[in-house]
Design a protein around this nucleic acid. Structure first.
Length: 295
DNA sequence: ATACAGGCTCGCC
DNA sequence: GGCGAGCCTGTA
């Protein structure tokens, strides 16, 4: 497929590379000065040039919609300055948000986001990426080529029709059963992800947690990255470490849900942004263990 | 080589 | 109704 359409869209207060490296989406690949990937069913190339985003896509008439799709996906409408100003003023938060300037919470397709985070448990980013690519390549629709293939994330109906063995072949291990069960519920519309859009936070979280392979952490990720719930505050091992070390340095024991409750109160209406900044800052500044060969 | 990793679930107490 | 172990697999 020829890529011959190009549009520039304004993108102030945005850092594309940082956003794509922050553990929200796992399928973008760097290519030349930019990145290729899929936004839903659209193949796209994006490249940042200062406060402008260059967007390339397949030529057909559908291209007209692409700039809007990109702007929405990267949440370029979020008032980032205001959001940052609303975060608490403590030193830990300030250091993290300074480090993450331009990092935005993106808006992902619901099923894709849910399925991806079901596969993420006890996995490192590199491995989540592999799983995402294998699922796409094996079950997804090929939607474009730009030096490399691009595949859409497979619809729930497709995965619902797969076997557990086929999913295991994609490296899912014990998660295969969970993904399959959830795909079947979503495909049967027993779990109608789109219609959950209007539920209040607590109810949405409850519904998500009823799905196989979804606990509080995954549910909060999906709420944040696919349902625009900017209060959602996923607590994984990184964030928990930060909370314990920085906010409760001399406490050892916590009641279940205690940190969650503290976070909701302390970080407030944009807690999801706070969490993402704390998370990314911790991940990138915590010294990795020395690798075997290189020190 | 061998822990260990961006969790969930189930069984046990 | 809280706590701990097991689950698959690639990576460091």
């Amino acid at each position: 497929m020829k890529i011959d359409s190009l549009v520039k869209i304004p993108a102030p207060d945005f850092d594309l590379a940082l956003t794509l490296d922050s553990g929200q989406a796992f399928h973008w690949e760097s290519l030349g000065a930019g990145f290729v990937g899929a936004i839903g069913e659209s193949a796209v190339y994006v490249e940042q040039q200062g406060a402008v985003l260059k967007v390339r896509g397949p030529a057909p008439k559908a291209f007209g919609a692409l700039p809007g799709v990109v702007a929405r996906y990267f949440s370029l409408d979020h008032p980032l300055a205001k959001i940052c100003a609303s975060l608490p003023n403590d030193p830990t938060m300030t250091a993290a948000s300074n480090y993450c300037r331009g990092l935005r919470i993106i808006r992902q397709p619901r099923w894709e986001c849910l399925a991806t985070f079901i596969t993420s448990s006890m996995k490192q980013v590199a491995h989540i990426r592999q799983i995402s690519f294998k699922l796409r390549k094996r079950f997804g629709v090929r939607i474009g080529i730009y030096g490399t293939h691009v595949y859409a994330f497979p619809v729930a109906e497709r995965l619902a029709g797969a076997t557990e063995g086929e999913l295991r072949d994609c490296g899912l291990g014990y998660r295969a059963k969970n993904l399959l069960a959830t795909a079947q519920r979503v495909a049967s519309t027993e779990a109608d992800l789109e219609s959950w859009r209007d539920l209040p936070d607590d109810e949405l979280r409850t519904r998500l947690c009823e799905l196989s392979g979804v606990g509080a952490k995954v549910a909060n990720c999906v709420m944040l990255f696919a349902y625009e719930r900017l209060r959602a505050f996923p607590i994984d091992v990184w964030v928990e470490r930060v909370l314990r070390e920085k906010y409760f340095p001399r406490r050892r024991k916590f009641r279940p849900g205690e940190l969650q409750k503290f976070s909701a109160k302390h970080f407030g209406e944009h807690g999801g942004y706070a969490q993402q900044y704390l998370f990314h800052h911790a991940r990138k500044t915590t010294p990795r263990r020395l690798s075997p060969g290189g020190r």
